[in-house]
């Protein structure tokens, strides 16, 4: 893998995380427990799609093959997407989607923070913009996690179950492969081991404040970063891509 190929692969991973999480979030539009949460959910999903668009456009420029942001989003097959498995997990109930977003964004904020200092100026600029949004999301989301954990017995049990269920998808975030290593070594990008420690510290704090139990160390799923996704991912992609695929060459 050349240096450029590694950068493109890395940028696409970032973009895919943002787009696929947004796609899951917009499935929830009109299903939120409060009108204020409709606004927050739409707002956060807009931030993610905005990030994905900047990143896909940059990947397209680096690749120089004439692809557009929409080609990346709508014309790649499922196994070409490189988002984390955590991101694509189905929405479940309100607590499940809060936990999914929290566990990811608690990682993403440190990933972006490191990227603001990386040697690729475009990535650093995009990260600097995204991190402001993600910090804001994290405040909102972690507050929900705390309210649910320390709310009623029912909410406590439900959100503990969400945490236990989704925990096995967190390991993948910290497993470095050749792309991560290339970004770290060539561009002074994130060191995943260091981020793992920061993530664990933050998550432990919030979980403690939420009066929840940290799940035990366990077997961790992986594959998303290499394009091996869950069964339900195919449906997400099919729904998202339907118009572009059905009317080849049309513009919208």
């Amino acid at each position: 893998m050349s240096r450029d190929e590694a950068v493109i692969a890395y940028v696409l991973r970032l973009a895919d995380n943002a787009l696929i999480l947004a796609q899951r979030m917009i499935e929830l539009v009109t299903a939120k427990p409060e009108l204020e949460e409709e606004l927050a959910n739409a707002n956060f999903a807009l931030d993610f799609i905005g990030q994905a668009r900047m990143l896909y456009s940059y990947a397209a420029e680096l690749e120089g093959a004439g692809r557009s942001e929409d080609d990346f989003a709508f014309m790649r097959d499922g196994n070409e997407f490189r988002n984390l498995l955590l991101i694509e997990q189905p929405n479940g109930h309100f607590g499940d989607s809060i936990v999914r977003q929290y566990l990811f964004e608690a990682f993403y904020v440190h990933q972006l923070d490191a990227l603001t200092r990386c040697k690729d100026q475009r990535i650093a600029e995009i990260a600097a913009r995204a991190i402001k949004e993600v910090r804001y999301h994290l405040r909102h989301i972690s507050h929900w996690l705390i309210r649910l954990g320390d709310g009623t017995d029912e909410s406590h049990q439900r959100v503990q179950a969400s945490l236990d269920e989704l925990w096995r998808f967190t390991g993948e975030m910290f497993v470095s492969d050749e792309v991560d290593v290339a970004i770290r070594d060539n561009l002074a990008g994130p060191d995943l081991e260091a981020i793992a420690a920061l993530w664990k510290r933050d998550v432990e704090d919030v979980i403690a404040e939420a009066t929840l139990q940290l799940p035990e160390d366990q077997w961790m799923a992986r594959g998303g970063k290499q394009g091996q996704h869950s069964e339900h991912f195919g449906f997400l992609i099919a729904e998202m891509q339907f118009l572009q695929r059905s009317y080849a060459g049309a513009s919208w």
Partner: peptide, 22 residues
């Protein structure tokens, strides 16, 4: 929303639906 045919259209539609909530 989940089937909007381009990222730009998706953003515009999502912002619109958000406006309606507002």
């Amino acid at each position: 929303l989940t089937r909007a045919p381009s990222l730009k259209r998706k953003v515009i539609l999502l912002a619109k639906v958000q406006d309606e909530a507002g």
